[in-house]
Design a protein around this nucleic acid. Structure first.
Lengths: 293, 293
DNA sequence: TTAATAGTGTCTTTAAGACATTATTAA
DNA sequence: TTAATAATGTCTTAAAGACACTATTAA
């Protein structure tokens, strides 16, 4: 029993616990570049959105040159797992990512503990655990990184969800394509678990908000969900109508109005102005496979 | 970064990781005892079902006499977290609880990792982590324990879900009532998280199967769900009809037939025989707050 | 006009829920 | 008969989904 073991001092006090983070973002790529001499109507077509994951290439053995999740240690005496994850997140992304909270780091970052991995064969140097986190980070916070590969060889990889075996390939130049065999440790397994976790959260909670601007059109929300969950393919017109009109989703979204009290609209993706919405954070999603509740 | 820290041997190889388990069961209590001289019709009325949690009273400081989750260590070199959890589970419950699997320990036990807890103030002896698991155990496997308190002072506590602050009280004699202040470490917090986790799983997956006999009536399923989730209160007749007839739940349950090809029925809770069903494990529940998928 | 998305209208089917009614069995 | 649960039937409303159609804007 636990009490006996700890009381007998069998267990050494830890210096820290390893933390690895699956940092996801949703990349938005206009189908046609702005500087080209094209019809502005075509320019406004829906962008290509792809789920991307931040990986770092290992400099040393074991797994030298393999790709791994960014991670670190809870190395301060008073630091929690979440605080360590946020610290690492900041190192890899935006230095001003925000303060600490329970899955509510900032309105542009979602952070949640995924699971702890501790299979004896996961690290050739011995039995070392890893507490894995997932983070959804708004694209703009990773813009610095995307400008080019840095010293640590951190790169964003597009997640290819059609094939479940060969999962990832490089986004920027498309040259580096990697699959499960190119991952260090058990990070391939962690990443598979993380993608499933994020997909599930995307369909059962309102985390889509972390991948959207504060005010967005219904079609943007549609784009985000179907980029993360490829099987999500309702007709855009029914989706827009149902989202706002259906009773069980009352209070999920609210229309945005400007100072004059007129409906605030956006023409970012369309010639015809589209109504802007925002998520209301009072909304508590409820899902069940059984009737009622 | 993780690679640097581990390569520099800052992190000591662990002897083991502490594992704590929230072992839940669903106690079934006939409203009237069998030996009383009562109308057999009344005897067959629905039983009282209550979610119960296994706790052990601590013998030593810190938190002497406080109640804690049963737990232990991954103390064998090749042991995984799940294996350690199963080993502890067996110690506390049925010695023949079954083999190892991913949330599929046996058809009578559900086991899943909940989260890892590591706040610096959770243990007065220093920063010690705990990997928490939840287990749903069929009542019959805990029958030995229920016979009476043993040397380790392990007891089942009824979970009182109406009041969120004062959560638990003793089941058998009803004398020992405990609340958040009577828990060791941060186990009160772990237990609250665990209850929420189990309730969510109960509504979005088919884990109810672990708390039921292999063949059961629709009313038994109804009893199980509403015992774990008190807000679940559909009318029994609509529930029975919808469960079997609704297209989106096609393949979830199947009727049981006897050797002669007649519908197999049960009179355990009713004078009129009720159809027996079983869960089909091909069924993959799908839930979403958005239309489609 | 056309390309592209925004949004409405209509119709059908499925599901949820209220509620009444009938069925079954043993005492 | 009665107590208790099992099961069916009917009606209403809410959602989901298919699909046609109109609206808006800039080139």
């Amino acid at each position: 029993m636990m009490s006996e073991s700890i009381d007998n001092q069998k267990f050494p006090k830890l210096d820290g616990l390893p933390v690895d983070i699956c940092i996801f973002t949703l990349a938005t790529e206009r189908r046609i570049e702005l500087n080209e001499n094209v019809d502005k109507r075509t320019l406004k077509s829906y962008p290509k959105r792809s789920l991307e994951l931040l990986l770092v290439q290992r400099l040393h053995e074991p797994f030298q040159d393999k790709w791994a999740l960014p991670g670190g240690f809870t190395d301060i005496e008073t630091e929690t797992l979440e605080q360590a994850a946020i610290r690492e997140l900041k190192e890899e992304t935006y230095p001003d990512a925000g303060s600490i909270g329970d899955g509510q780091v900032s309105n542009k970052i979602y952070l949640e503990q995924l699971s702890t991995y501790y299979r004896p064969d996961r690290d050739p140097r011995g039995k070392i655990p890893s507490v894995a986190f997932i983070a959804l980070v708004n694209e703009e916070l990773l813009s610095g990184l995307r400008a080019g590969g840095d010293a640590k060889q951190a790169r964003l990889f597009q997640v290819n969800m059609e094939v479940q075996d060969k999962m990832l390939y490089k986004s920027e130049d498309g040259n580096t394509k990697i699959d499960e065999a190119d991952f260090a440790f058990d990070h391939g397994k962690i990443i598979r678990d993380a993608i499933q976790f994020v997909q599930n959260k995307m369909l059962t909670t309102t985390i889509a908000v972390k991948l959207l601007p504060r005010e967005f059109t219904i079609s943007e929300l549609h784009q985000v969900i179907s980029a993360v969950v490829p099987t999500f393919t309702p007709s855009t017109s029914n989706f827009a109508r149902d989202l706002v009109k259906t009773k069980s989703r009352d209070g999920m979204l609210e229309e945005v109005w400007d100072e004059q009290g007129n409906p605030k609209k956006s023409t970012i993706y369309s010639a015809r102005p589209a109504q802007l919405y925002r998520f209301r954070n009072e909304f508590e999603p409820q899902v069940s496979i059984y009737p009622r509740v």
